[in-house]
Nucleic acid binder design. Sequence first.
DNA 1: TTGATTAGAACGAACGGTCGTTCTAATATT
DNA 2: AATATTAGAACGACCGTTCGTTCTAATCAA
Lengths: 193, 193
Amino acid sequence: MPESAHNARDKVMNTALRLFTEKGYFNTSMRDITRESSVSTGSVYHYFKDKQGVALALYESLIERMSNELEQIRQAHETAHDQCRAVVELLFRITDREPEAMTFMLYIKHREFLPSERPVCSSTPFRMMRAMVEEGMARGEIEPRDLMVASNCLFGGAVRTITTHLDGILEKPLHDYLDDVWTCSWRAVAASG
Amino acid sequence: MPESAHNARDKVMNTALRLFTEKGYFNTSMRDITRESSVSTGSVYHYFKDKQGVALALYESLIERMSNELEQIRQAHETAHDQCRAVVELLFRITDREPEAMTFMLYIKHREFLPSERPVCSSTPFRMMRAMVEEGMARGEIEPRDLMVASNCLFGGAVRTITTHLDGILEKPLHDYLDDVWTCSWRAVAASG
DNA sequence: TTGATTAGAACGAACGGTCGTTCTAATATT
DNA sequence: AATATTAGAACGACCGTTCGTTCTAATCAA
């Protein structure tokens, strides 16, 4: 149990993250959450509006955390090449260390249970990644083309590899594939000059 | 309504495909299906074991159809380059013409309601795509590296672009992005020689 | 050519169970 | 004492599924 689970709210969120990613949102009942978190029904509803509220809090906290990490990367590196590589490295590291967090962010279909949320592709982290690509194009590092296409091609290989890994197909930790994936990814969009 | 919807079984499957992709499997009740397909509860359970059975039949028919189309591509083209490009073209075409079919195959988390199914990445179509990449590597068209990494990088950009499109982010039909996406995709894995 | 028989298809009310949520009371905290 | 938190039984709604029945039309019997 993570150290942060010292109060009821965190215990609920940690349990919910685990159950939602293990069994899915709809296959997880509030009873599952109360039982496995050892927090009573009353407390859960004291801290969260409803079941959706639990999922929403989870989603927002993960998105915010990711945004912060991306902002740090943005400041730590000059070129789009270095920024984007650091992003892939970050995504791989999170997947290796906290597969549940990555599963919830990337793999789960949020809109099925958070109908008011925009698709993940429109979330802040994804927009920040596209902004990096955009700057890289302006700077001449990346061949000019439709921004969405370039972003998808640059990060698509990494994202698919993460998905594959979360599906349990890849045996080794993602970190072992990083250089290989990045070589391909960058070649896909790099300016020829 | 598709021409094939002349009997109850097809009507149920067409309706289920639409509802499952629109609202999600768990947000679709059997009552929704019976109401919108104008097929009675009894008939639905006459043709399908249960709700899962409807989803399973859908999934299997789509997977089989995709496998057939991939096999045709395999026979129609000599090189891995041409085969894989035709695959991306096919995926884009299906997405443009039958977004629901592609949504159900690529976007939906099947394992949440079909727990016994293997992940999509392990399905026949995906394995066939990897086989094409493998041959391309043996033939010297594609730079040798981990097969899964190469496949993910080759098809990752296209798959992400499809996902983005299904999320409603891309305005134009996918076909308009085909050349651009393929240029990037192939560059990612092509042998330098 | 009839009428009887039969098998499968269609029907939809009803059932048992589970779900998310509420509510009242008990307990801890200040 | 007053407020915040915890507790878990109880509630009503809705779900997937069952089941007894009716309908339809093909097959058989005369």
